[in-house]
Design a protein around this nucleic acid. Structure first.
Length: 940
RNA sequence: GCUCGAAUGGUGGAAUCGGUAGACACGAAGGACUUAAAAUCCUUUGGCUAUUGCAGCUGUGCGGGUUCGAGUCCCGCUUCGAGUACCA
């Protein structure tokens, strides 16, 4: 019987579509399982062979869960807003919507060929108004919320205003940009504009002047996770720091919940660790230093309060507002010159040079314990965005302070017994303290304590004496949410006569993205939306009820920026649950059924971007009662990247002659990339090579043994210029989708990165052909016990493997099983039925075909069959069980299956110095049998 | 620098709880069928020694340790990969 994969795959894909086999609805009678892939950005290059890796794995899992009686939600959609389509539009004038639609069509047709069980009726696109309406809606809700630390959740900004009116800032415990303190009376006396300014410090979506990563090459700002080594992630343009008024999300308010939530979810340790580092919780204290001639104390953050006696100078970040406050008239020219010089250096230069620079401000602070004068310096090694933008420098115990002190000849005072700070600082948090007052002396005593004790005691001391307070800091910054781009979600925001931002009424959403004729900034330097003035006025006209508040003089009354790429991907997993709902993002009834994602599959590259933002977003939705689960992704698996495997031919220098890999050392050659699609198992298809490039039409070849041209190879990134991009369509055409699916799984562990390499795909294809051959003829007798055992072994193995995402070993198990069964043909239905079912997640087309061959009268799909149980008894050997003990301690029990009789083995083992005692029952690992053999062998 | 992960034949990889290391597949070598090729099937395939001896020794990056027993656990290195980077 032939394996006609082309006909089989076309036939069943059509049939699944006609019968709507993969449509799912919420069904409270059945347990749910939500299996989600990270939806793709549809790029112009189409899918290469690496993209489907995760989709195949999740598809196997989804199908497996369905066969086990779960109601499986397994949707797919597109992250359709993004920079590449807009860059393309700027270059070619083609509208990003058109580009995106074309790319989506291509993606869809490629995915359709692979036989995925997506419920396409739930498809979503972040660029569709039905969808981004809810992105805008969440933004509005964030704008009208603040984070209350007493309740530890987001609350309505209205209740905050009420609190201010009733009690001022008294008893308020909320996350805030700039701390305020005022009474209820003062609040009531504030003008409206000032009240709004204060409220803005609390809103979860807020407008602020912030230092941003400005990318001139892209003409937009970027989030921290979109900048890599000072270059933009997309395009690789330089990025500089700039102060701009931007929309931000107060992600930092959730820092602690984002950190603690990690303990409750099933992600890999490395990914959790990456997020922990990104959140960067550090416990320490804020200490106040008084500065001569300034009323307000200068507060610094430190994780080492125990080193307070070692402070010999202080440092301000150049951008700190304290710089102006403390700089003396005498030092001002030098300080200004320094500020100027730092401003000109890009972040990239700062990272690259890493040289010590700084300037003395002329001011002195008072040491809070000793009262000594401490010089205040300014240097760019202190970051304005972390802590308070100022530090107390302890050169003896911090390498950066040390380098600074060395450079400017500032004193270095060691505080740890026996440490040597003559050439470098002693940064370790260990040792016994010295150089503070001793027990019995006047002053705060630290001498003789360990670092750990000293930290705790100092924290208590500064808290008790009003010198500062205990503080936990996070590295996690608020997310900058404005992009000066066209192809993104418009903000549902207009500006009133006072220039204050107001949100559009929720019922007016979506605010649709207008058409523009140019995708570049306006002549005034405004973002591209600035071209759509008509749209802006129409929108205000139609959607703003209180039109009196609009300032008629403004040129453009709406927010000009659009939202960043992560906006649309931050809640899409909720929308899939209820994609057509026009009343809510997701109805609470539907959400209480599907809840959160049981299995989320995607790449690690989203560890500090999407996976932080969407957890934040979901926690906010949880707080406001939209989502019923605090964490969106219960379990997460990162599939590895598929790298490219390039092939090389070796051209003899100065000739159109190519020499085979193993002979190339005899010639002067230049290696040239050759299209991997005309190379098979590293053997070059010479005819195809001649056609590939007209230059090689008359090329000559020096072949090696067997008249073959062998190519060299190397692992490189998969890219067009390396000629190593493999399109899944080609593989499907040559071998079929089922072979591709199995082969991608067979390639190695799912989570590991590996090069794409078609060597070996023949073996997988061969296996499927052998498998097909098992189905004809079908025997009508009782099943062979050996065959039964083989199939139950397979069921057990595959069940275990799918639960543990070890798909590569499953494929091996299939091969072993088929090899065993081949010699036992013809097989009965009792064997072929479970074989078809366990095959179904891996090779759905073939399994469906074989299923209908076995049961021609069957009208249902194999997708709704029942996953077979395995019979443990069938797998047992005819055994006796022993416990082996040494020195009276039982080390292991074992089943024994041997050519020897049990009595012979027992006698032998008992004769050995190790003792053996007979047990009842027969539970034990099978492998240990062999060890007993070994013992027996030793004894005999 | 810090954090995390990895290292097993010619290749991809297996060994799931500390129990026969190298499953399965590719590649290679030899053979059968065939006029021939393709396809298919069979045998061999970590290394070394022995192969008219059935076997022996050695072996999971390196050096130690724990254990009756270590690819697996512990300590110390080497190399590679990923993330992060003046985070006080």
């Amino acid at each position: 019987m032939d394996y006609a994969f082309r006909e089989i795959e076309a036939k069943w894909q059509q049939w699944w579509k006609e019968k709507d086999i993969y449509r799912v609805e919420a069904d409270t009678d059945r347990p749910k399982c939500y299996v989600l892939d990270m939806f793709p950005y549809p790029s112009g290059a189409g899918l290469h062979v690496g993209h489907p890796l995760g989709y195949i794995a999740s598809d196997i899992y989804a199908r497996y869960k369905r066969l086990n009686g779960f109601n499986v939600l397994h949707p797919m959609g597109y992250d359709a807003y993004g920079l590449p389509a807009e860059q393309y539009a700027i270059q070619t004038g083609q509208h990003p919507a058109v580009t995106t639609q074309n790319n989506i069509n291509r993606y869809r047709s490629q995915m359709d060929k692979l036989g995925f069980c997506f419920d396409w009726s739930r498809e979503i696109r972040t660029s569709s108004p039905d969808y981004y309406r809810w992105t805008q809606w969440v933004f509005i809700r964030m704008f009208h919320s603040y984070y209350d630390l007493n309740q530890n959740k987001a609350c309505s900004i209205v209740s905050l205003a009420e609190h201010f009116a009733a009690k001022g800032t008294d008893s308020l415990h909320a996350v805030c940009g700039q701390p305020h303190a005022f009474s209820a009376g003062e609040w009531k006396a504030f003008p409206e504009k000032e009240r709004q300014t204060i409220l803005m410090e609390y809103r979860l979506a807020y407008l602020a002047d912030t230092a941003v990563n400005w990318c001139p090459g892209l003409g937009t700002v970027l989030a921290n996770d979109e900048v890599i080594n000072g270059l933009s992630e997309r395009g690789g343009y330089p990025v500089e720091q700039k102060i701009m008024r931007q929309w931000c999300l107060r992600v930092s308010a959730y820092a602690n919940r984002l950190l603690e939530g990690l303990d409750s979810i099933d992600w890999t340790d490395s990914l959790k660790e990456t997020q922990r580092n990104w959140i960067g919780r550090s416990e320490g204290a804020e200490v106040d230093f008084c500065i001569d001639g300034v009323n307000q104390p200068l507060t610094v953050f430190t994780t080492r309060p125990d080193t307070l006696y070692g402070v010999t100078f202080m440092v301000l970040a150049p951008e700190s507002e304290w710089v102006n406050r403390v700089t003396s008239a005498k030092n001002r020219p030098a300080v200004d010159a320094y500020l100027d010089a730092t401003r000109k250096r890009t972040e990239r230069e700062r990272i690259a040079e890493r040289r010590v620079t700084g300037v003395f401000s002329g001011a002195y602070a008072r040491h809070p314990l000793t009262g000594k004068a401490i010089p205040v310096w300014i240097s760019d090694y202190v970051l304005v965005g972390y802590g308070t933008g100022a530090i107390m420098a302890v050169p003896a115990h911090d390498s950066r302070d040390y380098a600074f002190a060395q450079h400017f000849s500032l004193p270095i005072l060691p505080l740890i017994e026996g440490c040597d700070v003559s050439t470098q600082s002693f940064d370790a948090k260990e040792g016994i303290l010295i150089n503070s007052p001793k027990e019995g002396e006047e002053g705060f005593v630290l001498n003789g304590l360990s670092v750990k004790e000293a930290i705790a005691r100092t924290k208590d001391y500064i808290e008790a004496h009003g010198l500062g307070h205990i503080k936990t800091n996070y590295r996690l910054r608020d997310a900058i949410f404005s992009r000066q781009r066209y192809w993104g979600e418009p903000f549902p925001v207009y500006y009133d006569a006072d220039g204050l931002p107001q949100t559009l009424p929720e019922e007016c959403l979506p605010l649709e993205l207008p058409e523009v004729d140019k995708f570049l900034p306006t002549a005034d330097g405004d973002p591209p939306l600035g071209h759509a003035t008509q749209w802006a006025w129409d929108t205000v006209q139609q959607k703003v009820t209180d039109t009196a508040r609009i300032d008629r003089r403004t040129v453009f009354p709406l927010e000009l920026n659009t939202m960043p790429g992560f906006a649309g991907s931050s809640a899409y997993f909720l929308r899939y649950q209820d994609p057509k709902n026009d009343q809510a993002l997701v109805s609470s009834q539907t959400n209480s059924y599907w809840r959160n994602v049981d299995l989320y599959l995607g790449g690690t590259e989203h560890a500090t971007g999407h996976l932080i933002y969407s957890r934040f977003w979901n926690k906010f939705l949880f707080d406001i009662g939209v989502a019923c689960e605090d964490e969106p992704f219960r379990r997460l698996i990162n599939q590895g990247m598929i790298q490219g495997r390039s092939n090389f031919v070796y051209r003899i220098n100065g000739a159109n002659r190519f020499v085979s890999y193993n002979l190339k050392d005899n010639y002067e050659v230049t290696p040239l990339h050759v299209d991997v699609n005309i190379v098979s198992n590293d053997i070059l298809d010479i005819d195809a090579f001649r056609k590939w490039n007209p230059e090689y039409r008359d090329a000559e070849f020096i072949l090696e043994e067997g008249n073959r041209y062998v190519c060299g190879w190397a692992v490189e990134k998969m890219s067009k210029s390396m000629y190593n991009v493999v399109n899944p369509d080609l593989i499907v055409e040559r071998y079929g989708a089922d072979t591709l699916r199995l082969y991608e799984m067979f390639l190695g562990p799912l989570e590991q990165s590996k090069p794409w390499d078609t060597n070996g795909i023949d073996g997988v294809h061969r296996f499927l052909r052998k498998l097909v051959a098992l189905y004809e003829p079908v025997a009508d007798t009782a099943p062979d016990p050996k065959a039964l055992k083989a199939i139950h072994k397979l069921i057990k193995k595959v069940t275990f493997d799918i639960e543990h995402f070890s798909f590569n070993t499953s494929v091996s198990a299939f091969m072993i099983c088929v090899n065993e069964l081949t010699s036992l043909r013809p097989l009965t239905r009792d064997i072929l039925r479970p074989l078809s079912i366990v095959l179904a997640p891996f090779a759905p087309h073939l399994a469906e075909d074989l299923w209908h061959r076995l049961y021609p009268e069957e009208t249902g799909s194999i997708c709704d069959a029942r996953w077979p149980d395995f019979n443990e008894m069938l797998l047992q050997e005819n055994t006796d069980t022993y416990a082996i003990s040494f020195n009276g301690k039982v080390r292991f029990t074992l089943s024994l299956s041997a050519n020897l009789t049990a009595a012979e083995v027992e006698a032998a083992v008992i004769a050995h110095p190790l003792t053996c005692q007979r047990l009842e029952g027969n539970v034990s690992p099978r492998k240990i049998i062999v060890i007993l053999h070994k013992i027996v062998n030793i004894v005999l």
